[in-house]
């Protein structure tokens, strides 16, 4: 393939990768931003969302489109409910201690994996896209649904941005993020805010999974990859900064695409992983995050 078509493909793939990254990392970024805890089970929430998308599509008569729409209701609701229980029964009881939360959510990660294996089985499960349209370029074809994912994730990101910056609830969340004590002093029910944020983070990642699973497959061990990628995005972008996460997602999506086209893809993963580690060491607040408090 000559250079320009190759570049076009790399850009398309990079854009899709960036959209997938930004979308999967959004929930983690939100939770970390407001609650200052790292949810290691984030990837498993993604996996559950994907599994539920498959299950709903299987149960729902009326073809892939009906299943897709139904999954948009079922998956975030169910994953959100699980997140609610997690927040109440686990995180609240350990008082959102950052280190204890990591250990507890590692435990949760195993429990969710086991549940998925027991109830959904070990096979990889394909989920049909709501529509199949192949865009034909002179040199190669490309999945129309992948571009839809880019548009949809743009919409979800805009929606979240709007809630955070333009609504009263967004304001409350930002105050809580800034300082828990101050928020309490102003009469903000911090515990309720935490509940809502944790549930919203989980529901968002479930939405991401429903959108993304037609271009991948549901499998009970699929959660690790989105988790690590989300870490990378959230850390490089600056913890809790959604704008930073989006920029980071595009940087990583694009560079990862280019490096893996010209060099070894494993090398690309090694480099981006090391990059994160070094960013954290040198600039703990991330490339775009401001030092908080």
């Amino acid at each position: 393939m000559s250079f320009l078509p190759h570049l076009l493909l790399a850009v398309l793939e990079g854009t899709v990768a960036a959209a997938v990254l930004a979308l999967s990392a959004l929930g983690l970024s939100l939770v970390f931003g407001v609650m200052r805890v790292v949810n290691v089970a984030h990837g498993e929430f993604f996996m559950l969302g994907a599994m539920l998308a498959w299950w709903t599509a299987k149960m729902m008569p009326g073809g892939p489109f009906a299943g897709f729409i139904a999954a948009f209701i079922v998956a975030p609701a169910a994953v959100g409910a699980l997140a609610f229980l997690t927040e109440r029964l686990l995180l609240r009881r350990i008082n959102y201690d950052p280190e204890a939360t990591i250990v507890a959510t590692i435990g949760l990660l195993f429990v969710i994996q086991q549940m998925a294996l027991t109830f959904f089985g070990a096979d990889a499960k394909p989920v049909a896209a709501p529509f199949s349209y192949r865009i034909v370029f002179p040199w190669f074809g490309y999945s129309g649904y992948k571009l839809f994912v880019v548009v949809a994730s743009g919409a979800v990101l805009l929606g979240v941005w709007w809630v955070l910056s333009r609504t009263r609830f967004g304001l409350i969340m930002r105050v809580t993020q800034f300082d828990r004590e101050t928020a309490t002093a102003f009469g903000i029910p911090v515990n309720t805010v935490y509940s809502v944020v944790f549930v919203a983070g989980a529901a968002l990642v479930a939405v991401a999974a429903v959108l993304i699973v037609p271009i991948q497959q549901a499998h009970y061990l699929m959660g690790l990859d989105p988790l690590l990628m989300s870490f990378i995005v959230v850390i490089i972008g600056g913890l809790g900064s959604i704008k930073g996460s989006v920029i980071a997602a595009f940087m990583i999506g694009m560079t990862d695409g280019v490096i893996s086209v010209f060099f070894s893809p494993t090398l690309a993963s090694i480099i981006s992983t090391l990059a994160v580690a070094f960013v954290l060491v040198v600039r703990p607040q991330g490339l775009f995050g401001a030092e908080t408090r």
Partner: peptide, 15 residues
């Protein structure tokens, strides 16, 4: 259910 045991022990310890 070895995964479940590992997970449950971790959670129980923390709690």
């Amino acid at each position: 259910v070895s995964l479940l045991i590992t997970g449950a022990v971790l959670i129980a310890l923390v709690l």
